[in-house]
């Protein structure tokens, strides 16, 4: 039982963290909301005053917004599909009795530690460049015409890069989850005559459900904010073909200096993130309680 004295002490100990995070959460967000209803452009300082919903109408009404929204969903969905399915398969493979398991783990996790701009530039210049990229050489080796990935399939190329970074994360989390499945459980299933497919379906997959849930949740948080990979490869283009919501706000607010419209985009991004968070928490809440 906590005494009054320890309660006071623990409040004092928590105060700095709580205050700092409270300020961090409230002040900028309120400012974003405020700016989003103002006429505020760094290029045209004469234009000031209350803008009503004009910024929102301008941002949401623009075709670039719809495209950025669709791109965001494709980017998040595509990367999640690749990393979760690939992660489950790879984790199962690494769990098999294989030689060099420890070393393999280290090799497989490595891409996750590569900072986003490096990952993006390696892929852009070393692999996907039609002239001297490794994929270009490979295509030529098979007598095919090298593909100009970032011009022809910009969004797909970004998905490949991001999936490469996050597949190791999913694999590592899921492998940790599989390995916590006790050997007795597996042996019992094996002795009961369950075949490999049934063992996967009824024992391994349910056991991994919680970890998969967590992988999806955490990755979604990060994937909604993908930025550097786009910035250093396509710059959001060609046109808006690889612009997501995060990049659109950056483009509007910082590159075009339209504070009002950029802020409106920022508010929309916060709303989308919240919808996704609530939706995910609901859909998977059952799993999280377990």
């Amino acid at each position: 039982m906590a005494t009054a004295q320890t309660r006071t002490l623990s409040r004092v100990m928590m105060a700095p963290a709580v205050i700092v995070l409270l300020i961090w959460m409230i002040v900028p967000l309120v400012m974003t909301l405020w700016f989003s209803f103002q006429n505020y452009s760094l290029i045209n300082p004469m234009m000031t005053g209350f803008a009503g919903w004009a910024n929102y109408v301008y941002v949401i009404g623009d075709p670039s917004f719809t495209q950025a929204l669709v791109n965001t969903l494709i980017l998040v969905g595509g990367v999640l599909a690749i990393t979760v399915v690939g992660g489950v398969l790879l984790a199962m493979l690494l769990d098999q009795p294989i030689w060099g398991q420890g070393l393999l783990r280290i090799i497989v996790i490595s891409p996750f530690f590569v900072m986003p701009p490096v990952a993006a530039l390696i892929w852009k210049n070393g692999f996907m460049h039609p002239g001297y990229g490794m994929l270009g050489h490979l295509w030529k080796f098979f007598g095919l015409q090298p593909v100009d990935w970032f011009n022809q399939y910009p969004l797909f190329s970004v998905i490949v890069i991001v999936a490469w970074q996050w597949l190791p994360f999913a694999t590592l989390i899921l492998l940790t989850a599989i390995q916590s499945l006790s050997e007795e459980q597996r042996e019992a299933a094996e002795m009961d005559g369950a075949n490999a497919l049934n063992r996967f379906r009824y024992i391994i997959l349910p056991h991994m459900a919680r970890a998969i849930t967590i992988v999806i949740l955490i990755q979604t948080i990060f994937l909604l904010g993908i930025f550097a990979e786009i910035r250093v490869t396509t710059g959001g283009g060609p046109g808006y073909a690889s612009t997501n919501i995060t990049f659109l706000v950056f483009r509007t607010g910082i590159l075009s200096n339209d504070i009002g419209a950029g802020s409106a985009g920022g508010v929309v991004a916060v709303i989308i993130a919240n919808i996704v968070a609530i939706f995910l928490m609901r859909a998977v809440g059952k799993n999280l309680d377990a």
């Binding site: 995070l21 607010g253 991004a269 993130a273 968070a277």
Partner: peptide, 20 residues
């Protein structure tokens, strides 16, 4: 609540932080 502050997209506060 602390975890939820992590879910806020950075771009939602980019502009005020940039101006501050």
């Amino acid at each position: 609540w602390m975890l939820s502050t992590k879910m806020m997209p950075a771009v939602g506060v980019l502009i005020p932080i940039y101006l501050i």
